[in-house]
Design a protein around this nucleic acid. Structure first.
Lengths: 351, 351
DNA sequence: TTGTATGCGTTATCAG
DNA sequence: CTGATAACGCATACAA
């Protein structure tokens, strides 16, 4: 029936304590005992009872998530929602999760991770928004033997336990293929986005890279593509007129590709200036983006299961550290296409 | 810290046994005791420890899934994969799951459910493929007080505990909107599908209904739509020439909408007869469909997270019957759009 | 109607 | 290096 520790202990002719020590490699045991116990396990096929283990466990696993303040970058609302879902499920087990927020400055990120390092942490999740700081952080984690997961942005060279997110280059390619659908002969696509000052994230660049690749591969003339990029302070409204002028002087533009998650800003301008006949392809199902999708200003949004990202990241740590399962090193989530007709059913997505 | 049964027993001035009886409504208790215990629970906020409960539990919950043989309808491979994933996760708990297969004949379905009814079953999952038999089955289940979940197909009037699947009408609408993208002035869309004899499923009809609605709502002329439907025996190849003739005599057709999951059959004909300039919108990421998607014969596939459907159905039963949580009555999953550029990342999707 | 005792399979401690 | 044993929180059988 069910094989227990005591069953294999009897079979091996030792006590339960010894079996436990051998299974978990804690304490010292004689080679003789190790051999006998392993043999018994092979023959009888022991599977630990999670409930019993959990009940008896004294130690609590401690996971920490470092995420940017969703009030500053709205994108993070949904990964956090996913984390909260995971926290609920993990409440059955001896696992404790803390979420630490930082604001979008390198210094704030540094403070956050120093705070995390002061705690006794068994596993950690963060998005390497800041290239240099992330590197320093990762090195310290490796030194302290604390496994960590990269979420949303992947800095492969830092060798995280696992990356969870989207293939940004392929997402850019997909955006390009959707743009092409709406593009007639001799019409243009514009790459336009507005970002805060000094916000240059690798995944945004990857999306643009994939986008351009697609057009190149299809042998489409590059002159069909123009770019409009502004780095501005969050509250600066000066760009609005600049944008309007740009559009007025580019009558061939039919599609605008917005590679960051703020397509709603561009959509807002189309609405404000009553610009017709231009459609937008953007990223992420933020509330504001969805609003303009439903109004027809945005034709497609490419989404990345943000909630699921948050959920999976914690579940991965759980799988790796609680159950000692092997996990895949790169977990690329689906690249979702949203339009007016399917966006209403997207929010329930969890996963 | 953690509130245990014994804690609230002390607070209420009774024994642990009494608290247990009141929480689970087993055995008789005095009104006085009930009141005191409930008060204590309110004040202290008791949450049962799942691990301890699970360890002590004698009874095993028994779930049964009735699914059609995936060798006959390939669609079912993925829901079954999702069920297997759920079974793995539920292995931690005192839950046992059986999957019973039936082949696509009403008689076989009837045999399957009679087999299920003979077992001691606590919860059940099935797709109501056969209208009449499903009704009889549901009535028996209600009589025996066995909760059941409808998967993939929804027969609302049978009042399942929950439905998990896609909004087929909306999926049809989405298909129509994607068709429209590829449709120029004066061009036609063809609704074409090949099904086995006497296979008329409600969700296929709903997709067509949604599809037609979309065109009607947009004020598009209905004469742009033509239909080609064949009910044939699985091995009958006679339809191939019929199809070819139909296409030859309909030069305006630019897009073919295939409302069932066998777009690969139509795609295969386009390939075989070297028909160019026509693209297909179909359903479900079956292996064969994906092949033709990658080859360019199919432009879009609309998918329904089949694996997730299977997974969720078991998790729902678990939530409802093991933890006694309230669950939503209708769980509509996202309507996914697949094309060449994102299909490779779709398979990993779980949920 | 109520209280008590035993056991579920593991962990962790302590004495050998 | 090893064996014995007391928790862990709940369910359940039995005694009162």
């Amino acid at each position: 029936m069910k094989v227990r520790i005591i069953d294999i202990a009897k079979k091996a002719g030792v006590s339960a304590g010894t079996v436990d020590r051998i299974i978990h490699q804690r304490g010292k045991c004689s080679d003789d005992a190790i051999e006998k116990v392993n043999k018994a396990i092979d023959e009888m096929g022991y599977e630990p009872d999670i409930s019993a283990r959990n009940l008896a466990l004294k130690k609590v696993l401690h996971f920490v998530c470092l995420v940017s303040d969703p009030n500053e970058i709205k994108y993070w609302y949904r990964p956090i929602a996913g984390m909260e879902k995971a926290i609920k499920e993990l409440a059955f087990f001896k696992v404790k999760v803390d979420i630490i927020y930082f604001s979008i400055r390198a210094l704030s990120f540094r403070e956050a991770y120093q705070k995390a390092l002061k705690m006794r942490v068994d596993g950690l999740i963060y998005a390497p928004l800041f290239f240099e700081e992330s590197k320093i952080f990762a090195e310290e984690l490796h030194q302290n033997n604390i496994p960590f997961i990269h979420l949303n942005i992947y800095q492969r060279e830092l060798n995280p336990l696992c990356f969870i997110g989207q293939d940004s280059i392929q997402a850019g390619r997909l955006a390009a293929s959707l743009c092409e659908l709406g593009l007639g002969d001799n019409e243009q696509v514009l790459i336009a986005y507005i970002s805060g000052i000094h916000q240059e994230y690798s995944h945004i660049n990857s999306r643009i890279e994939g986008f351009l690749h697609f057009f190149a591969e299809q042998g489409l003339p590059m002159k069909q593509i123009s770019q409009f990029q502004l780095e501005i302070d969050e509250n600066d409204k000066g760009y609005e007129v600049l944008f309007k002028d740009y559009i007025d002087s580019s009558p061939k533009v039919r599609v605008i590709f917005v590679p960051n998650s703020r397509a709603y800003r561009i959509a807002n301008l189309l609405k404000k200036f009553k610009i017709k006949g231009i459609t937008i392809i953007g990223f992420d199902a933020l509330e504001d983006n969805v609003k303009f999708l439903n109004q027809g200003y945005i034709q497609f949004l490419i989404a990345q299961q943000s909630k699921n990202q948050g959920y999976q990241s914690l579940m991965m740590l759980f799988k790796a550290l609680f159950r000692k399962e092997n996990i895949v090193k790169e977990q690329y989530l689906p690249i979702d296409i949203l339009c007016k007709e399917n966006v209403d059913f997207y929010s329930g997505k969890m996963v």
